[in-house]
C-alpha cells in the first residue's frame, strides 16, 4: 500500500508536469479561442499518446508471444530514463547545442534503447525463462517481483551523488530532466502550434513503428516471432529455437521502451523512480484497449489514452484524469475484453 500511496504522489507530480507544458497556451491573456485550446490539447495528447503507444508495444509483443503481462516493463523504462539523465550529467550535455545537441539526443536514445533491450532480455533469461513450463500465475508473480526490484534499483540510482540527481540527498524526489530540445514553437499549422519537442516525438516514434512493422511482417525473425506466438510446439518442430525468439522479442520490446522513455523525459522534463508505474499503467491500459497481443491495437490504444488524458486534464480536471483512464480500463474489461482490434480471446489448454 506504500507503493500505491507513493504512486499517487508521483501521478500528481506527473500530471502537474504535463499541465505545466500546457500553461503557455493560457499565458497570452486569453487570446486563445476554445478551438485553439482544443487543437493544442490534441497535439499534446497525440504526442504523449505516441510515447504511450511505443511502450504499449512492449507489453503487447511479450503478451503475444508468452501470454505474460510483463509488469516490469514500465519500471524498465524508468531505469532507461535514469540512465539517460546520468549520461546527461556525466557528459555535461545540458550545455551542448547545435549539432552537438542533436548528437547528444541521438546518443541518449540509442544508449537507453540498448540498455533497456539488454535488461529486458536479461529479465526474461533470469526471471521468466526458468518458468516457461510453469503456470501463467507463477510467471505473473515473477514479473511483479522483477518490477519491485527495478523500482528499488531506481530509488538507489536516484541517490547517487551527482549534480543531476541534486547531489543524491533525496533519492526519492523527482529529478529535473534538462530541456535539451526546445519547447519553443517552430511550426504553426492552421491554429495548431508545434514545438520542436512535438516534432521530436513524431521523428522518433513513427520511424520505429514503421521499422517494427517491416520487421514483424517481412523478416525471418518477425515471421518466427509470429509462428512462436501462434503455436510454440509447431515452431519447435520447424527447428525454431523458441527461447531465442522469445529473447529477441524481449530485447526489441525493451529497446522500444528505451526510445520511448528518453522522448518522454525530453517532453515532460521530469523523471522519478515511480514514473514506471504511471507510464506502465497507461501503456498497459492502451494495450488492453487496442487488444492485447495486437500491434496496431497498441498504437491505436496509446493514441486514444494520450488524447483522453489531455482532454480530461483540460475539460474535466487533472485530478480526475486517472479515474477517467482507469474507468476506461474497467469498461473495456467488462464490455469488450478482447479490445478494439483484438481477436476473440481463447483459452489455451
Amino acid at each position: 500500500m506504500l507503493r500505491a500511496a507513493a504512486a499517487a504522489e508521483n501521478l500528481a507530480i506527473a500530471v502537474l508536469g504535463q499541465a505545466g507544458a500546457v500553461l503557455p497556451a493560457f499565458g497570452a491573456d486569453g487570446q486563445l479561442s476554445g478551438q485553439e485550446v482544443f487543437s493544442q490539447q490534441l497535439v499534446t495528447g497525440l504526442s504523449n499518446g505516441m510515447i504511450i503507444a511505443l511502450i504499449a508495444i512492449g507489453y503487447t509483443m511479450v503478451y503475444g508471444i508468452i501470454e505474460l503481462i510483463n509488469f516490469a516493463h514500465g519500471d524498465l523504462c524508468m531505469l532507461g530514463a535514469f540512465l539517460a539523465l546520468t549520461i546527461v550529467g556525466a557528459l555535461g550535455m545540458a550545455e551542448w547545442s547545435g549539432v552537438g545537441g542533436v548528437g547528444g539526443v541521438v546518443l541518449l536514445l540509442f544508449s537507453a534503447a540498448v540498455f533497456c533491450g539488454g535488461l529486458n532480455w536479461s529479465i526474461d533469461r533470469l526471471a521468466y525463462r526458468p518458468l516457461r513450463k510453469a503456470s501463467k500465475l507463477s510467471l505473473l508473480v515473477s514479473a511483479i517481483g522483477a518490477s519491485f526490484i527495478l523500482v528499488n534499483l531506481g530509488l538507489f540510482w536516484g541517490g547517487l551523488p551527482m549534480d543531476v540527481f541534486a547531489g543524491g540527498g533525496s533519492s526519492a524526489a523527482p529529478k529535473d530532466f534538462p530541456a535539451l530540445v526546445s519547447n519553443r514553437d517552430v511550426l504553426t499549422l492552421g491554429d495548431v502550434r508545434w514545438t520542436l519537442n512535438d516534432l521530436l516525438v513524431l521523428a522518433v516514434t513513427v520511424p520505429l513503428m514503421v521499422a517494427l512493422t517491416v520487421l514483424v511482417k517481412f523478416t525471418k525473425l518477425g515471421k518466427a516471432m509470429r509462428a512462436v506466438a501462434q503455436n510454440p510446439t509447431a515452431a519447435q518442430l520447424m527447428g525454431i529455437d523458441v527461447d531465442r525468439v522469445i529473447g529477441s522479442t524481449f530485447f526489441i520490446g525493451g529497446a522500444l521502451g528505451g526510445f520511448a522513455t528518453v522522448v518522454y523525459s525530453l517532453y515532460n522534463n521530469t523523471i522519478s523512480f515511480q514514473m514506471g508505474y504511471r507510464m506502465g499503467m497507461d501503456a498497459f491500459i492502451a494495450a488492453v484497449l487496442g487488444g492485447i497481443g495486437n500491434l496496431p491495437g497498441a498504437v491505436l490504444g496509446g493514441l486514444l489514452i494520450g488524447v483522453v488524458r489531455s482532454m480530461s486534464d483540460q475539460y474535466v480536471e487533472a485530478r480526475w484524469t486517472n479515474a477517467v483512464v482507469f474507468g476506461i480500463l474497467i469498461l473495456i474489461l467488462v464490455f469488450r475484453p478482447s479490445g478494439l482490434l483484438g481477436a476473440k480471446l481463447r483459452e489455451k489448454v
Binding site: 515471421k223 509470429r226 509462428a227 501462434q230
Partner: peptide
C-alpha cells in the same frame, strides 16, 4: 529428422506461403 504434427498444428495466422517458409527456417 522432421515431424509432420497431427491435425491443426499449422500456423493459423501465417499465410500458406509463410507457413512453408517457416518449414525452411533452418
Amino acid at each position: 529428422l522432421v515431424q509432420v504434427p497431427e491435425g491443426r498444428r499449422i500456423f493459423p495466422r501465417l499465410t500458406v506461403r509463410e507457413n512453408l517458409e517457416m518449414g525452411a527456417f533452418i
